[in-house]
Design a protein around this nucleic acid. Structure first.
Length: 491
RNA sequence: CGGGGUGUAGCGUAGCCCGGUAUCGCGCCACAUUUGGGAUGUGGAGGUCGUCAGUUCGAAUCUGGCCACCCCGACCA
C-alpha cells in the first residue's frame, strides 16, 4: 500500500525522511542543504521556543538581537574558534548586482566588492563579544545575561532534514560574568535547563555530561552537553552549554574594573539548542504509523472526529462536543473539532495518527445515544469506549499519562540499550550487534579516543555527570581510568 | 569534497539499450451514491520528460556541462 510509511526496521533513515515529509513537518527547498519548515512542523518548533524562552526568562535572561553578518577579521581573533568554523562558512563578497551585459538576467557587479568580506554567522560569539567590549567597564555592568533567537549557517557537506541543515534556527545564550565560579554555575544551570526541557516536555531522557577535549566547542574551556539515544541505537547531541573561560574576553579585550580594584578579563558562557531538537523529538518516539508527539509539545493535543451522515446528526454531536472544547480550552488544552465532511472518518484517523496527535476522540450517533465516546491513544494505539460524563477530567488525566508513558518508554528503551563493557573486543561486538550507549573505561587521552573512533566510528558522547563513576582501567590501553565514559555512534 | 545511484503531471512510476513529443496507479476537479479504520462508480483536467548546450530532418531516449536529491565515505557546535 503506497499510503504506508517505510518500516523503521527495513530502512531507518528512509523512514525518517518520509515521516518528516508526510507528516508535513518540513521539506527540502530549492537551495542546497536548506529546508522549508512547513506550518505543522513550525508550530512544534514554536511550542519548543515558547517553553524554552519562558525558562530562560525565569533564570534571569533577556532576549536581544545581533547581526547576521560578521566581519571576517572578527572570526580569526580567537584561534581555535576560527579553526573550528572556517571550513563551513558562507562568505559575502559583494553588495550589488547588475544586468548581465549578455542579456541573461543579472550578474555580480565586480565593482561592488566589499573592502572586508562578511561571514554569515555560523555562531555569534565573536560579534557579541565585540559588542560586549563596549557594554562592560565595571563589575557593576556584570553579569550580562542575554539570549538571541536566530538563524545560523554552516555549510555542511551532507545534510538531513532537521538533523543537519546548512541553515538552521536556534537560540544562543551569551553571558558575561565577573568570576569564574559564577560563569561555571551559569554553564551548569543552563545545562540543567536543557535537561529539564528535554525530559519534561520532549519526554526525552538525556544524559548530562562533559565533552572530551576532542569534541569540545571551538573556543571553549569546557563543553557540557545533553545526549539522547535514538531508536536506531545512535546517539544525538541535543544541546550544549559552554564555559568559555576568558578566551573571548581576551580575544576581544573585554576587561572590567573589579570591586577590589584592578582590571580583569570577563568570564563567558554560551549555550544553544537548535531545530535539531525536532529531529530528536521525531526519532525518539515515532513509530511505523507516523509521529508520536508528547502532549506538551503537540500543536493539536486532542482531536475530536465526529461521525455523521447528515447535518442533523452533526448538530447533535456538536451540542455534545462544544462544552468539552470550551472546558479543555479553559484548562489550556487546544482541541481541534474536525467537522470537515470532505474526508471520511477512517481517513482522518489515519491522518491524525501520521501527525502524532496524542489523543483522539470519536463520536457518532451511537455514542450520542449511549452517552459515550471512543478514546484512542496515539502512543499505545489503545481504543476504549468511555462515558461522556467526566470526559474533560479523563482527557486531562490521559494527556498527563501519555506524556509520562512516552517518557518511560523512551527511558526503558535507553536502559535496555545501555551496556557496561570492560574489554575492547566486547565493546566492538556490542556496538555492531546492538548499538546504543556503552559505558566503558578510557584512559583520558585524545590518542586513545581517536583510535577508538577510527576502529569503530564510536565517539565519547560525554563524561557523564549523572552516573556514578568508579575508577578502573582503560579497555584499550589498560592504563588507569577515572571512571566509565559514555560511548556511542552518533548523528 | 571522493565513490555509487536517481531525476518523466502534486506524489510514485513505465518508456531510454534500439531516436518519431509519453504508460499506469494514487492524488486533483464535477456529479451521484457513501461516511464507526485511508469509500465506490461515471466523466474530466493536468506534462518546459531536472537544467543548459551539442548531434540529428526529428531527442524523454544519444553526447557533454551544470543543478538537486538518496546511499557509502571524508568532514561536522
Amino acid at each position: 500500500m503506497s499510503k504506508g510509511l517505510p518500516k523503521r526496521q527495513d530502512d531507518y533513515s528512509l523512514w525518517y525522511n518520509e515521516l518528516v515529509k508526510r507528516a508535513d513537518l518540513a521539506e527540502n527547498s530549492a537551495v542546497r542543504g536548506c529546508m522549508v519548515i512547513k506550518p505543522y512542523g513550525y508550530s512544534i518548533w514554536e511550542k519548543m521556543q515558547q517553553v524554552l524562552d519562558g525558562m530562560f526568562k525565569e533564570t534571569g535572561h533577556t532576549n536581544a538581537y545581533f547581526p547576521l553578518f560578521i566581519p571576517k577579521s572578527y572570526l580569526s581573533k580567537e584561534a581555535s574558534h576560527v579553526e573550528g568554523f572556517a571550513k563551513e562558512c558562507a562568505v559575502v563578497t559583494h553588495y550589488r548586482l547588475k544586468n548581465d551585459p549578455n542579456g541573461k538576467g543579472v550578474v555580480v557587479d565586480p565593482e561592488a566588492k566589499l573592502e572586508e568580506e562578511l561571514i554569515v554567522r555560523p555562531t555569534s560569539e565573536t560579534v557579541i563579544w565585540n559588542t560586549y567590549k563596549n557594554w562592560i567597564q565595571s563589575y557593576r555592568d556584570l553579569p550580562i545575561l542575554v539570549n538571541q533567537w536566530a538563524n545560523v549557517v554552516r555549510w555542511e557537506m551532507r545534510t538531513r532534514l532537521f538533523l543537519r541543515t546548512a541553515e538552521f534556527l536556534w537560540q544562543e545564550g551569551h553571558t558575561a560574568h565577573a568570576t569564574k565560579v559564577e560563569a561555571i554555575q551559569e554553564t551548569e544551570q543552563m545545562l540543567q535547563v536543557y535537561a529539564t526541557f528535554a525530559q519534561e516536555y520532549m519526554a526525552l531522557p538525556v544524559h548530562k555530561g562533559i565533552k572530551s577535549a576532542n569534541e569540545r566547542f571551538a573556543g571553549a574551556e569546557e563543553t557540557y552537553c545533553i545526549e539522547a539515544l535514538m531508536q536506531d541505537g545512535k546517539a544525538l547531541q541535543a544541546g550544549t552549554s559552554h564555559f568559555l573561560g576568558q578566551n573571548f574576553a581576551k580575544a576581544f579585550d573585554v576587561k572590567f574594573a573589579a570591586k577590589e580594584g584592578g582590571l580583569e578579563y570577563v568570564w563567558g558562557t554560551s549555550w544553544g539548542v537548535s531545530t535539531r531538537l525536532m529531529g530528536a523529538l521525531i526519532m525518539a518516539h515515532s513509530d511505523d504509523e507516523g509521529l508520536v508527539l508528547p502532549p506538551k509539545l503537540a500543536p493539536i493535543p486532542v482531536v475530536i472526529v465526529p461521525i455523521f451522515k447528515n447535518e442533523d446528526q452533526l448538530n447533535q454531536i456538536t451540542a455534545c462536543v462544544q462544552p468539552w472544547v470550551a472546558a479543555l480550552k479553559s484548562k489550556g488544552i487546544a482541541v481541534k473539532f474536525d467537522t470537515n465532511d470532505k474526508f471520511t472518518p477512517g481517513y482522518k484517523f489515519a491522518e491524525y495518527e501520521l501527525k502524532g496527535v496524542p489523543l483522539r476522540i470519536a463520536i457518532g450517533p451511537r455514542d450520542v445515544e449511549n452517552k459515550t465516546v471512543e478514546l484512542a491513544r496515539r502512543d499505545t494505539k489503545e481504543k476504549t469506549s468511555v462515558p461522556q460524563e467526566g470526559l474533560v477530567e479523563r482527557v486531562l488525566g490521559l494527556l498527563e499519562e501519555i506524556q509520562n508513558s512516552i517518557y518511560q518508554k523512551a527511558l526503558s528503551y535507553r536502559e535496555s540499550q545501555t551496556h557496561s563493557v570492560d574489554d575492547y573486543v566486547t565493546f566492538q561486538k556490542v556496538l555492531d550487534e546492538k548499538g546504543g550507549f556503552i559505558l566503558a573505561h578510557w584512559d583520558g587521552t585524545s590518542e586513545t579516543e581517536e583510535k577508538i573512533k577510527e576502529d569503530t566510528k564510536a565517539t565519547i558522547r560525554c563524561i557523564p555527570l549523572d552516573i556514578d563513576r568508579a575508577p578502573g582501567v582503560c579497555m584499550v590501553t589498560g592504563k588507569p581510568s577515572a571512571g566509565r565514559v559514555l560511548f556511542a555512534r552518533a548523528y
